Simulated scan of single mutants.
Amino acid sequence: MHADTGTDGADVLLVEDNHGDVHLIETTFEERALPGELHTVQTGDAALDWLYRRGEFADAPVPDLVLLDLNLPAVSGQALLEEVKSDPRLKRTPVVVLTGSDSESDLIAAYEAGANAYLLKPVDPDAFADRLQSITEFWLSTAVLPPAAPTDAE
């Protein structure tokens, strides 16, 4: 639950470079009225700028949930996850890996880096939407989360 305003004010950062997956996730949020406002970036570099509120994202909201693809250009999803979970200001933010990789080594590496969940992207769009709805509702409506740690900008 968003610490200050409940789920109505919750922000979800989607880090995904596949346009088809982005469209499916945006459509799922809209059609199923999922909690939270979805914000999308397509690279690990842009996600870091968002999370650290740099450059064009200086006024970006601190996300209450990050949905992260592992296969990203430049800064990988795994590197981004490691950065987030090693930063005292960001490590409380739940990070859910949404990936097509069923590799055991990717799964283990994600959890060792601090992922809060690892979800495979099903091929079937309805099954994918169902999983997305379940995980989003859990993290933003069911789980009680600590407040985000203050950032230097605050």
Score class of each variant (00 low, 15 high):
His2Gly: 08
Thr28Val: 07
Leu51Ser: 02
Leu81Cys: 06
Gly9Glu: 01
Tyr52Phe: 12
Tyr52Met: 09
Lys85Asn: 08
Ala74Val: 10
Val41Tyr: 02
Asp130Asn: 10
Glu82Trp: 01
Leu90Phe: 09
Pro88Gln: 14
Ala79Leu: 01
Val97Arg: 00
Glu83Lys: 11
Asp21Cys: 10
Ser141Cys: 13
Pro122Ile: 09
Ser86Gly: 14
Asp4Met: 11
Ala109Cys: 10
Leu65Asn: 05
Lys121Asn: 03
Leu38Ser: 02
Thr40Gln: 04
Gly36Met: 06
Glu56Cys: 05
Met1Asn: 09
Phe29Glu: 03
Phe29Pro: 02
Glu104Met: 09
Ala109Asp: 11
Trp50Lys: 04
Asp8Phe: 12
Leu13Tyr: 01
Leu80Asn: 00
Thr5Asp: 11
Thr136Glu: 08
Leu70Pro: 00
Asp45Lys: 12
Leu24Asp: 09
Leu51Met: 08
Pro125Asp: 08
Leu38Arg: 03
Thr93Asn: 07
Asp126Asn: 11
Val84Met: 14
Tyr52Val: 02
Pro61Arg: 08
Lys91His: 14
Asp102Pro: 00
Ser141Asn: 11
Ala3Val: 04
Arg131Thr: 05
Asp21Tyr: 13
Leu80Thr: 03
Ala110Arg: 01
Arg53Glu: 02
Ser141Tyr: 04
Pro122Tyr: 09
Pro63Phe: 07
Glu37Ser: 11
Gly114Lys: 05
Val41Met: 03
Pro147Gln: 06
Asp4Trp: 13
Leu120Thr: 14
Thr5Trp: 13
Phe128Ser: 08
Val144Lys: 13
Val66Thr: 10
Ala79Asp: 06
Asp4Ser: 12
Gln133Val: 02
Pro63Ile: 08
Asp4Tyr: 14
Asp130Ser: 11
Glu112Arg: 15
Ser141Pro: 00
Arg131Met: 07
Ala113Leu: 10
Gly77Trp: 00
Lys121Gly: 05
Arg92Thr: 09
Val144Ser: 12
Val15Met: 05
Phe128Cys: 10
His19Met: 12
Ser134Val: 13
Asp106Tyr: 05
Gln42Trp: 04
Ala127Asn: 06
Glu137Cys: 15
Thr151Asn: 10
Asp130Gly: 00
Val15Gln: 03
Leu72Phe: 05
Gly6Ser: 09
Ala58Leu: 07
Ser76Thr: 12
Thr28Phe: 02
Ser103Lys: 02
Ala117Leu: 08
Val84Asn: 01
Leu34Val: 02
Asp106Gly: 05
Gly114Phe: 08
Glu154Lys: 07
Ile25Met: 14
His19Cys: 07
Arg53Ile: 01
Lys91Ile: 07
Val75His: 01
Ile135Glu: 08
Ala115Asn: 07
Ala148Cys: 08
Gly100Leu: 02
His23Gln: 15
Glu104Val: 12
Tyr111Trp: 13
Ala58Gln: 15
Arg53Trp: 03
Leu81Pro: 00
Asp64Asn: 15
Glu83Thr: 15
Arg32Ser: 04
Val123Leu: 09
Ala74Cys: 05
Ala115Met: 09
